[in-house]
Amino acid sequence: MLAEIYTQEIEAILAKYPSDQKRSAVMPLLFLAQREYGTLTNEAISEVGELIGLQSTEVASLVGFYTLYHDRPGGKYRIQVCTDLPCSLRGAQAFADELCEKLDIRMGETTPDGQVTVEEVKCLAACDHAPMFQLQEPNGIHYYEDQSAGSAMALIEALRVKGQVD
């Protein structure tokens, strides 16, 4: 249970907001739940709801609204390539296609070992360093800029090794 494993962290999150506005903590708590469970299952969602006195259905609608929350399983590592207009003007689409080809998956799919999902996302405020992607992993999001299919594949290989150990 989150309440037991992350007692202090949950307290720190709640302390950011007025004591009568616990609902504000729902977004950071969902990130916490996603870190613990990987996917925001119904159980994870109702657990978050209980922490702040919110109906599961309300929490679930937030999960559906915000793209960084996942209620369906995917790879442990999500490579989210920006293919929005400015990046596409600087080779992002070709990069995305080449990466998918090297991984032998289509855009949006997960590699057979269940480790890596490649997804398309909108502008990440890094358009001057295209091609670029962000890596969403259980505990955070990191930017990788000025990428080539080669550099991305090297990262993915390292992640696969790490993913098997963790």
């Binding site: 950011k16 977004m27 915000y66 929350y69």
Partner: peptide, 10 residues
């Protein structure tokens, strides 16, 4: 001062 993270929504 407190930071608050969004979760992907323009």
């Amino acid at each position: 001062m407190q930071t608050h993270l969004g979760a992907g929504a323009y």
